[in-house]
Structures are given as C-alpha cells and as structure tokens.
Amino acid sequence: MRLTFTVNGRKQQADDVWEGESLLYVLRERMGLPGSKNACEQGECGSCTVRLDGVPVCACLVAAGQAQDREVVTVEGLADFARQRDHGGCAAEGHGISLDDAKRWRSKPGENAQLSPIQRAFIDAGAVQCGFCTPGLLVAADELLERNSSPSDEDIREALSGNLCRCTGYEKILDAVRLAAARSEEAV
C-alpha cells in the first residue's frame, strides 16, 4: 500500500508498504530515519518512542497504515521541534548563525549540531553510554518537560518508566532531566 504522512515537518511518502509493517519499520527502513530504535518490537522498552500527533507512542506498535495523514516527530526532528515550541515559530527563525560560529564551523559529523536542551543535558550529565535507549528516552523526557517544567524525581521516574536502559542504572538519566529542567528555569 501507499503511505503518506508528515515526519519532522516534512511530507513523506512510501510505496509498496506491507500492511503488517510497523511505523518503526517504515521510519527506519523506508524513510532513512533509523534514530528510533528497534530494541524489543513489543512495546516493552520505549526505544522507538516517537510523537504521533504530539503523543508519545511506541512506533513499533503503530501499524504503518495508522500513520496515514498524521504527524510524526522522531529524535532526528527533536531539536527542531523543541526550537519551534520555544520560539513559537519556524525553526530557522531568530536563531541565525553568528560570524564567530560560522568561522568555527567544521565539516565533521555531529559537531556543532543544534541540540535541544534535553539532548544537551543528556550529553552533559553522562546519561549516554551505548546510546540505544537514548532516542526514545529523549522523546519521552522532552514531552515530560513540556507538560511539567519542574518534575519531582518520582514524576521523572514515572514518566520514564516505559523506557528501559541497560547501561546507566538510570541515575545519570535522572540527572540529565533535572539538569534540563534547572537550565530551563534559569533561562526564564
């Protein structure tokens, strides 16, 4: 079947989609967006968490056809999504590159990427080890902070209880969410 939907603000189309495919498979294998991860494919790990019309869901449990005409945000679009939310407008607006930044620019993967506050906090807090759980956790944590800008530890634990991490023991993930929350308070 043919599938048309919006991913990270862009209209996308896929053809010859098998009806049993998940949204996760379509994103990873047909859209070139492998950021959402395939750790369990049974909704028990949260690694594939994406926003579907704004709601955090496990992309592995959304049938591809159910995404028709809907809007999906993945980790690849998280920074833009956060910027639009913070500035209430287009991602590029109001965030020009300074001359100094431009001079420092280097063509190296990952360097100087525009990160959302939660992405920055995950790096700074040491919340990333193997990183396989990270994309799903970022989408879930970002949505938590959108709802609740100063969550208690138990709130953070509840909001992230659907995201398994096998490397970190979660402590530094808690640190990262606290850090992002504290930085946003400071910024206000």
């Binding site: 909704g43 028990e44 709601v55 955090p56 496990c58 449990l61 879930a140 209880s161």
Partner: peptide
C-alpha cells in the same frame, strides 16, 4: 497498564 507510551495508545 504497561508504560506511559502504552497508556497513550
């Protein structure tokens, strides 16, 4: 039920 993600669906 399950997780926040599952409860959303």
């Amino acid at each position: 039920v399950g997780s926040p993600q599952i409860r959303n669906r």
